[in-house]
């Protein structure tokens, strides 16, 4: 990979209007994903987080404006070329009836395969490693439809990891996971970020997780980005009140010192 050009990051978009047919979700949106960051997007339900992620991964074509990947408009690349640079874990995927875990994870190799190259030793090694790092190796020969929601989520992540992309966009990777597996997942993301220098973008629901893991936080409301930057500088009680309509206290996380959000106790307290 060439080094990113001076001022601009590998992945950014300007002047974006994102819409489903006539229904505009975001207007005049500008977004930059800092290189080698662990960017977390937070915001209330239906504020357009998934829509933004879909635009950044060229799954949704902006009604106006362009997303740039490595200095070029993302839609000008061949589809497989994008998929070798940028992996997407969508919010919802469908496992076909009866498909095996290893089959599904192996699908992540598609952008690297060609007509004559369907299953090289490298494909095999990468798939094995992706399954090991997400802890699903023991499930390799089970059917995906026999798995629990949490196991399934890890299988999908393994598929995206098998894509071996330096940029990863993950839409709610921790849903369906119990607290321990949520932390495992986030630690894995942090490891990909710290040790391999991957750029990660994740939509998370838990603000405390976001504050603890993000190096760059994007806060959205009604299709707009209302705040961004390091969690320590961005997250305030006023912001959370404004964006989520929830009165909170922000205190330092006793474990990491990052901001920690504690909702005020509203029971019996008139506001």
């Amino acid at each position: 990979m060439s080094t990113p050009s001076d001022a601009t990051s590998r992945l950014h978009g300007q002047d974006l209007t994102l819409a489903y047919e006539q229904r505009v979700i975001s207007r005049d949106l500008a977004v930059t994903i800092p290189d080698h960051s662990f960017t977390v997007i937070v915001g209330p339900n239906a504020c357009g987080k998934s829509t933004l992620l879909r635009a950044l991964s060229r799954t949704l074509k902006p009604a106006h404006g362009h997303v740039h990947l490595d200095g070029r408009v993302i839609n000008s690349y061949p589809a497989k070329e994008v998929a070798r640079r940028l992996g997407l874990l969508p919010q919802a995927s469908i496992a076909p009836d009866g498909i095996g875990v290893a089959d599904l994870v192996a699908r992540g190799r598609f952008p690297h395969q060609g007509f004559l190259r369907q299953w090289s030793k490298q494909d095999e090694a990468v798939v094995a490693e992706a399954m090991a790092s997400t802890g699903v190796s023991e499930l390799a020969h089970r059917s995906v439809d026999e798995l629990s929601g949490g196991q399934r989520q890890r299988v999908w992540l393994a598929m995206v990891l098998a894509q071996q992309t330096p940029l990863l966009l993950l839409d709610e990777p921790t849903t369906y996971l119990d607290i321990a597996h949520q932390m495992d997942m986030l630690d894995l993301c942090a490891q990909l970020h710290d040790e391999r220098g991957h750029t990660l973008v994740a939509v998370l629901h838990d603000l405390n997780h976001a504050c603890r893991y993000a190096t760059h936080l994007i806060v959205m409301k009604e299709g707009m980005i209302v705040a961004e930057g390091h969690p320590a500088t961005v997250v305030t009680a006023d912001l959370v009140q404004d964006v989520f309509g929830l009165p909170v206290r922000v205190i330092p996380d006793p474990e990491t010192g990052t901001p920690m959000i504690v909702p005020l106790d509203r029971r019996g307290v008139s506001r």
Partner: peptide, 13 residues
């Protein structure tokens, strides 16, 4: 069959 977004993410037009 994996879903449109997943397929597009993997580089399928």
């Amino acid at each position: 069959e994996l879903g449109d977004d997943t397929a597009r993410g993997l580089g399928v037009p």
